[in-house]
Simulated assay, not measured.
Amino acid sequence: MQALTYIGPGQKTWGSVPTPAISQPTDAIIKIVKTTICGTDLHILKGDVPAVTKGRVLGHEGVGIVEEVGNAVSNFKKGDRVLISCITSCGKCEYCKKQMYSHCEDGGWILGHLIDGTQAEYVRVPHADNSLYPIPEGSDEEALVMLSDILPTGFEIGVLYGAVKPGDIVAIVGAGPIGMAALLTAQFFSPAKLIMIDVDDSRLEMAKKFGATEVINSANEDAVKSIFEQTKDGVDVAIEAVGIPQTFDVCQRILRPGGHLANVGVHGISVHLELQKLWIQNITITTGLVNTNTTPMLLKTVKSGKLTPAALITHRFEFDQFLEAYDVFGNAAKERALKVIISNT
């Protein structure tokens, strides 16, 4: 089969690799119909995730068709259309019983990380009964790709960990896919203000369409100063959705007393934590890897039309254009790219 393979920092290739086979009775083999590229894939390519070894097929998002199941799989059969979760869950270990699926003792984030992922014609999904979701009849499968990772990530690690509540002033630093997912799902809780901070005017314009009440281009103005000029004493919730020291620093400096800093971004290097200033302000700082325990709820909101993640898709490609898709996504500002869809037709 054809797949996108990591060769080493800064190196990738699109070419032929062995087709996966059932290795455990709880496995399923899925024929990929649609997949995408995540910011985490770009972090891997930069060398930020050393656990990813040479020859790994990347990707942890997608929808597809069940090709084969192991004899212990009971919820799915050949021909079923399924959403693939970015998190693999055995459903039985201590962490799974706490709904901390990201720390599953025989799973977690392994697709495109510790085992081959979804940027391929076929993928092996361990613990299929707990790691796949049936696609409702008539669903927009492109939209559902957003539920593999970015929507539950923005919602769980940004909005829920940030404890967004009605009337809050919320600032999201980073208008990429994760920041936009946090923006869309924060509106479930009716915050008073949703402020989006980024350096890309085109993404800030898109954020306005998605519900941002204010936008700040931090390349043109001092974001911290602007926040304090338009609030009493800062924001209730700051969501870090980039993963670099500069954006984390903005978040820790704009919080009001009692505020929450929800770090969602993947950090490849350390940040400077101003704990000497934060401790006396009763600040809560949270971090996390998505658990995807909210995916069933998000599926319902998409099916009902309350959430429209298809709006996040800006570019579409075929599988033989995978390297071009990476070029576009990797130059998001220039290409005005948010999420790309790659279809196996």
Rank of each mutant, 00 (worst) to 15 (best):
L307V: 09
N282C: 07
D201V: 08
G330P: 03
G176Y: 01
D168E: 06
A175Y: 02
A332V: 05
G167K: 04
A192V: 06
V66R: 04
E67A: 12
C86P: 03
A223I: 07
G70M: 12
A223P: 02
N291Q: 11
N293P: 00
G211I: 07
E240H: 12
I195W: 02
S102Q: 05
G176R: 03
L312R: 06
L255N: 02
D200W: 06
V266P: 01
K339C: 07
K232M: 08
D48S: 14
K34N: 13
T295M: 03
L255S: 02
A207L: 12
D80F: 03
D222V: 13
R253E: 15
T153M: 04
D320A: 04
G64R: 11
G154S: 10
Q119T: 10
L323M: 15
A333K: 15
M196L: 15
F317H: 10
K208H: 01
A238D: 09
V63S: 01
G112D: 07
K12H: 14
T185M: 04
I283N: 05
E142M: 13
E240S: 08
I115N: 11
V17D: 06
G108L: 07
Q187N: 08
N75S: 15
E229H: 11
H103M: 14
T19E: 13
G167F: 04
M206E: 12
M297P: 00
A238Q: 11
I280C: 01
G108C: 06
C104V: 11
H103R: 06
S23T: 14
V82P: 01
P136E: 09
G288D: 00
V264G: 03
T26I: 15
S74G: 12
G138E: 14
I135N: 04
T301Q: 12
K97S: 09
Q246T: 14
L323V: 15
K339M: 14
I244R: 14
H43I: 01
V73W: 02
K54R: 15
L4G: 06
D27P: 14
A171R: 01
N75E: 13
I254R: 00
R336W: 03
K165D: 09
S202H: 15
I7T: 07
S89Y: 09
R336L: 04
T5I: 15
K77D: 09
K277V: 00
S226T: 15
L183E: 00
D236H: 14
I269C: 05
P9V: 13
H43F: 04
N331G: 06
I178C: 05
H260W: 13
S74P: 03
L42A: 11
S304G: 06
D222F: 12
G117K: 02
N263F: 02
I30H: 04
P296E: 10
D320R: 08
D200C: 13
R256F: 05
C96L: 06
I244H: 12
E94W: 12
L298Q: 01
S74A: 13
I115G: 10
D27R: 04
N130E: 09
Q246N: 14
A182P: 05
I65G: 08
I178N: 00
E105D: 11
L160W: 00
S16T: 15
S190V: 06
P134N: 11
M100T: 04
C86H: 10
D80E: 07
M180Y: 09
S85N: 13
G174Y: 02
G108T: 07
F189V: 04
G176K: 03
